[in-house]
């Protein structure tokens, strides 16, 4: 009895007196960039000892958590409009770019074998195309043996920036989609299973024969999923590569939207990947915890400077240097503590 009492007392003592570890940065949101954020966090921790506690719960969750001030930063691939940023006192800046790819699970079809275009993808997700050997798909894939089985559709069940970009693209290429479903982080899907996060979609498609889903490219690459090629705005068939994502991003005018909120879907250019997307970080301009925000800014600055190669390894596209310079200037002018002192010194 006394042994148990002492054990209980010891654990209780540990529990209530555990010192908060060297300021872990807390963030929550998009699953789209999670693979590269995790890689950066790992390297940053090895270098500085500061950890990143990132809850990969979807862009919707990230927006909610930062608005509720339960985390230091939020991450979202659905940019907030300027009005909302001003109302909430949030600063928004893009961290990295990537591509959304359709992934399938069909016997005998290898990555890059299948070709799909926007209108067909829209019809599949509207539930109008139900079988794999539908003429619309066959037309794009002469020479590929398509089974006559039903298409098992997978989409997101949570609020997702990936969905935002995906549905934005579908609305752009399919007026039917635009009127019936529209663009947003969570939509009323006409058919299919809902999976949680890019992770959930990747897992579902990997396990379900005859399925189709959409994920950020790193998920397809890391989990050896069968991605497809796509027909872009210029009518050319492109494969999802870092070059294709970069080509789409090349024309972006980052200053054209408040908070750099530029959508890169369906960009012109022969080599452009049609579903390229950027992902943003949300921070308070006058944060309640300036120290934590300062640490977060240091991490982001480190990631811009030293994380480019790690990002490229996972086929993400780092932000161009000129934009980074602009963003960091924004930090020092906009993000301040209570006394007006900027939280980011340009000494990095």
């Amino acid at each position: 009895m006394t042994l148990m009492k002492t054990a209980l007392a010891a654990i209780a003592a540990i529990a209530t007196s555990w010192p908060v570890l060297a300021a872990d940065i807390s963030g929550a949101g998009a699953t789209f960039p999670y693979p590269v954020y995790a890689k950066w966090a790992d390297a940053y921790k090895k270098e500085t000892g500061i950890g990143l506690n990132y809850q990969s719960i979807g862009s919707g969750g990230g927006i909610k958590q930062i608005k509720a001030k339960t985390v230091t930063f939020g991450a979202s691939d659905a940019p907030l409009p300027g009005k909302e940023l001003d109302e909430s006192g949030l600063a928004q800046f893009p961290m990295v770019m990537g591509g959304i790819v359709p992934v399938v699970n069909l016997d005998g079809i290898k990555p890059g074998d299948l070709v799909i275009d926007g209108p067909t993808l829209a019809k599949i997700y509207l539930g109008e195309i139900k079988k794999w050997d539908d003429p619309a798909i066959a037309k794009l894939n002469s020479g590929v043996k398509l089974p006559s089985s039903a298409i098992a559709l997978v989409h997101r069940s949570d609020g997702s920036g990936t969905t935002y970009n995906f549905s934005y693209y579908l609305s752009d290429v399919s007026p039917d989609w635009k009127s019936k479903v529209g663009t947003n982080t969570a939509v009323q899907w006409p058919a299919g299973i809902g999976a949680k996060g890019n992770e959930g979609v990747a897992q579902n498609v990997g396990n379900t024969k005859g399925s189709i889903g959409y994920v950020e490219y790193a998920y397809a690459k890391q989990n050896k999923l069968t991605f497809t090629r796509m027909v872009n705005k210029a009518g050319k068939t492109v494969a999802p590569t870092a070059e294709a994502f970069q080509a789409a991003a090349a024309n972006a005018d980052w200053k054209s939207q408040p908070g750099y909120g530029v959508i890169l879907a369906n960009q012109p250019g022969d080599a452009s990947w049609p579903m390229t997307a950027a992902t943003w970080i949300l921070l308070y301009k006058s944060p309640a915890d300036p120290v934590a925000t300062g640490e977060a800014l240091k991490f982001f600055s480190w990631s811009y400077a030293k994380g480019a190669d790690m990002a490229k390894d996972l086929d993400y596209v780092p932000m161009p240097a000129k934009v980074v310079g602009d963003i960091q200037k924004m930090w020092s002018t906009d993000i301040k503590d209570a006394s007006g002192k900027p939280l980011f010194g340009m000494t990095h």
Binding site: A15, W18, V20, L21, D24, N53, Y54, Q55
Partner: peptide
């Protein structure tokens, strides 16, 4: 929480 944390006032 991905890290080791026994700070009961946090996740």
């Amino acid at each position: 929480n991905q890290f080791f944390s026994l700070d009961m006032n946090a996740p």
